[in-house]
């Protein structure tokens, strides 16, 4: 359990929110031109990072608005909350904290050099 600061309602318990998965996935302009692999990639393939991840959240049991969250999935620390449509914050080079303070090796390293495909 953790608290999320809704841009409208302020700090509320996580149970009031729903996560809408990875943010900043752009719908392809011409779906008919895509191969099945490319379309499946757009529909289903999501990153599941140990470290800093960009997500969409909805305050479903409050004001029912969507917003973006930059969250460290290892510690649930929220680095930034920003509106839909805004660019993701730059997190390159931020070493994500880990629960017991161990160095963020392995998959944690992915997020330190996060780039969109």
């Amino acid at each position: 359990m953790f608290l999320i600061k809704c841009p409208y309602c302020g700090e509320r318990d996580q149970s009031e929110f729903n996560c809408g998965g990875e943010a900043h996935i752009v719908r392809p302009k011409n779906p008919p031109d895509l191969t099945d692999d490319q379309w499946a990639d757009y529909l289903f393939m999501r990153k599941n990072i140990k470290g800093i991840q960009f997500e969409r959240w909805n305050h479903s049991n409050g004001c029912r608005r969507w917003f973006n969250v930059t969250r460290n999935t290892a510690t649930d620390e929220i680095l930034k909350i920003y509106n839909m449509g805004e660019q993701p914050p730059i997190v390159t080079g931020i070493a994500p904290k880990t629960p017991s303070g161990e160095t963020s090796i392995g998959s944690g390293n992915i997020s330190t050099s996060y780039t969109k495909k």
């Binding site: 309602c9 302020g10 318990d13 009031e16």
Partner: peptide, 19 residues
């Protein structure tokens, strides 16, 4: 409630949607 009542219902015109 998980809501912080002191913050969320702090005035006579407050409303809060919650669980």
């Amino acid at each position: 409630l998980t809501l912080n009542l002191d913050n969320s219902l702090n005035s006579s015109s407050s409303v809060a949607q919650t669980l």
